[in-house]
Amino acid sequence: MCEPGGGGVAAFLNRHPYEVNAERVLPLDGGPAHPVGADGSAVGDVPMGGAALSALNKSVRNKSSLNKNKNKNKNKNKNKMAGTGGGGAALSSLMPALELRRLHQLPEADPFTVARRFVWECLDICLPPGPDFTRLETAVLLAMQARDAERMRRLPDIEAQAAFSVEEFLRPLGISEVAGYEATEGLFLNILQATEYVGLLYKGRIDRDRPNVVEPRLRPLLAVPAHQSFPSNHAFQAHSIVFAFNAILPEHPATEELQRIAQNVAENREWAGLHYPSDTLAGKELARRFVPYLRDAFAAGFLAAQSEWH
């Protein structure tokens, strides 16, 4: 499944090597230095903003008095960016370049030598089923399509989730539009970007056709994305956020609600006629296997987010 390759992001990063330490990012080619903060972002970056308070978390309630109107404006601007398109393209200006570079560094020898293959590119997830099982899956999707009432009930969520936003995950935590949780929200946004990139790598290598290509009687509720079907990036991204927060604060009472939301986001892509059920399962499994590499690359972000909850 994983074929050697030296192009794309890895090739770009190799052409622009940086020396990375705890306080600064120094270009090895003599260019200007860029100070970075504890979370790995450039000093001077505008923090992303953190509505209703959760009665489950007293500290959230205490922080809510800190300039809610200012954070509302931040969220409006951020959501306007997130709503202009789907996935990584919508948030391209927020691409976590430093963390992506860490993903592309070797743990030994010269850290700026690009490997032909990285472990996180070759994670052991089940490949798509064969044609007979795929036909069974399309029959399931046709049966779901025939349930017009349920499909129309889900349609508002399906449309809202087309352009992935982290707001749905912030609300059950009680930190939507609340000051003091910028690192948590920023981490979620960066995870969204990184997993979009990684998921597209797997899609390109596996190259599974969308369900409507196999079964022309399917009528998707949204425009069918141009990229491949397996694994589901919505499932991968949503569950990656859940697994990340579980690593930060596993005892939080909203963790089960986050899991329910992630599953709903993933299953709505099936109800929309865009993904097979096996795409959804693969996306969740990829998130489970990728989270250790995510924690390594975003270590500073994880620590900064964790500090907001203690």
Rank of each mutant, 00 (worst) to 15 (best):
A90Q: 08
L53F: 00
D29H: 06
D29Y: 03
L106A: 14
L26E: 05
P35I: 02
R116L: 15
A97N: 09
V43E: 11
T113Q: 15
P32A: 15
T84W: 05
P96T: 11
N71F: 06
P47M: 02
A90D: 05
R24M: 10
G31E: 08
S92V: 13
N67V: 08
L91R: 14
A82N: 12
H34N: 03
Q105R: 14
H104I: 05
D110C: 10
G83Q: 09
L26V: 10
M48S: 01
Q105K: 13
R102Y: 14
A51W: 03
G37W: 00
L91V: 15
N62W: 14
D45N: 12
N57Y: 13
G50V: 09
M95S: 14
K63I: 03
L66V: 13
G87T: 06
R101A: 15
N67S: 13
L26Q: 12
A52P: 03
K76C: 01
N79Y: 04
S65E: 07
N62I: 13
E99N: 13
L26D: 10
G44E: 02
D110H: 14
L28G: 04
G31F: 04
N57G: 00
K80L: 01
K58W: 15
L103W: 10
V46A: 14
L103E: 00
M48L: 14
A42D: 08
G85C: 12
G85S: 15
K70F: 06
W120D: 03
E108M: 07
K80E: 02
T84S: 15
M81C: 03
N75D: 06
P47Y: 01
D39C: 08
N57I: 06
R101N: 10
A55W: 12
G83E: 11
G44Y: 08
G31L: 00
L56C: 05
N69Y: 13
P111S: 08
G83N: 09
P107A: 10
R101H: 12
L91C: 04
M48K: 01
G86W: 06
A42M: 11
G50K: 05
V46I: 15
V119L: 10
A89I: 09
V119K: 09
E108G: 07
L91Y: 03
G83P: 06
L98P: 02
L28M: 12
G37A: 13
K80D: 00
G30F: 02
S41M: 14
F112Y: 15
G88R: 00
A90F: 01
L26K: 09
D29I: 01
G83K: 07
V43S: 10
N67P: 08
F112C: 12
A55Q: 09
T84R: 14
V25S: 09
L56E: 10
L103V: 11
L100C: 05
M48R: 05
L26T: 15
D29V: 01
L91M: 10
G49M: 00
G44I: 01
K63T: 09
A52D: 04
L103G: 06
D45A: 12
L28W: 02
F112V: 15
N57K: 02
R102G: 13
P35R: 02
L106W: 05
N77W: 01
L26A: 05
G83F: 03
L100H: 03
D45M: 04
N79F: 00
P111L: 01
G37T: 09
S65N: 07
G88I: 14
L106F: 01
G31Q: 06
K68P: 15
L98V: 12
E108L: 11
A97W: 12
V46L: 13
F112K: 12
L66S: 15
L28I: 08
P47G: 02
K68Q: 13
P27C: 07
